[in-house]
Design a binder for these strands. Structure first.
Lengths: 161, 161
DNA sequence: CGACAAGAGGACATACTTGTCCTCAAGTCG
DNA sequence: CGACTTGAGGACAAGTATGTCCTCTTGTCG
């Protein structure tokens, strides 16, 4: 699982992506996303230093995406925040575990990790934003991208009477 | 990933399973498995209290499996040690995340978790022991069970000249 | 310039995992 | 019984993740 910080970042940036180009206050992002505001401030600061966000102090300031949501993946966030969950680790915690000196779960775990990283690299902030927008709209809005796991997430529910 | 403690338990019990019915000292298991001895003692004590191991103090004492290695799965170990990695958690850390109120990664993560739990429930101490035995033997020993991920782990290497 | 807004950033707090260390309890055997 | 063996179990410590709190710096605007 992703660290809490990376999950927060994904949610916050998904919200930011729906806000257009105008700066949003950290406090507002925190409230809208249900994230502790001081903690989110640290996360946003870290992402700004990594060049994923642009922050602006003073009146009219706030936070904006540094580039298109399409070009920011969950994997980018995880790397920027030093998320330990994307590092290769042995599932059993064996000190020496590699392809040559495998633990009993090595092949299984390598496969799992591959799927996990693939999902992180394939899923963008735009995907997250689209999912949340769809959800807020009551699951009725169509979606244009069907090539990610996100596109298959919502149950196909009949139109409400 | 499993907690360190559960991984240690899997390795230790895998070793125990190869020792037959005679008790093995915690110290010897720790040395053979590369696990800190005092920490392993706590893990073993916890597993004994859960009925997975039988411990015996005094001369000739040590630790033995309480039942057949076939009937102890990695999932049993994880539950006995309160491994938090088997609890359902939202990949993004979202507070409220369920089938009805999903996060953008919910479907993907649910699938991953299903595979993970399935592996833990399917893999037994006997499997771990067999894997280690095979490895120590130089990857040449045949294996009888081909129905677990473990059975496919080792590369089919040609016999050594 | 001075007041105010808003992010920056360090100090500190809390919880959990992973260990270490020391002493106690239980068992065996002469 | 008494010495010895071996697990039991509590106190304590280090490291990391997750937050909170307070002050400082940077910016806008009158």
């Amino acid at each position: 699982m992703l660290n809490q910080a990376t999950g927060y970042a994904a949610t916050a940036l998904g919200f930011l992506a729906t806000a257009g180009d105008k700066p949003v206050l950290v406090k507002d992002i925190a409230e809208a996303s249900g994230i502790p505001s001081p903690y989110l401030a640290k996360i946003i600061n870290a992402l700004a230093r990594k060049g994923l966000l642009v922050t602006q102090r003073g009146i009219g300031g706030g936070v904006v995406l540094a580039r298109s949501g399409d070009s920011i993946t969950l994997h980018d966030l995880a790397m920027a925040l030093d998320d330990t969950s994307i590092l290769p680790r042995c599932m059993l915690g064996t000190a020496e575990c590699s392809d040559e000196r495998a633990c009993p779960a090595h092949e299984f775990w390598t496969g799992m990790r591959g799927r996990y990283l693939d999902f992180l690299k394939r899923t963008t902030i735009t995907d997250v934003a689209a999912f949340e927008t769809r959800r807020r709209a009551g699951h009725t809005a169509p979606h244009s991208r069907g090539d990610t796991m996100l596109g298959t997430l919502l149950p196909i529910s009949p139109p409400r009477p």
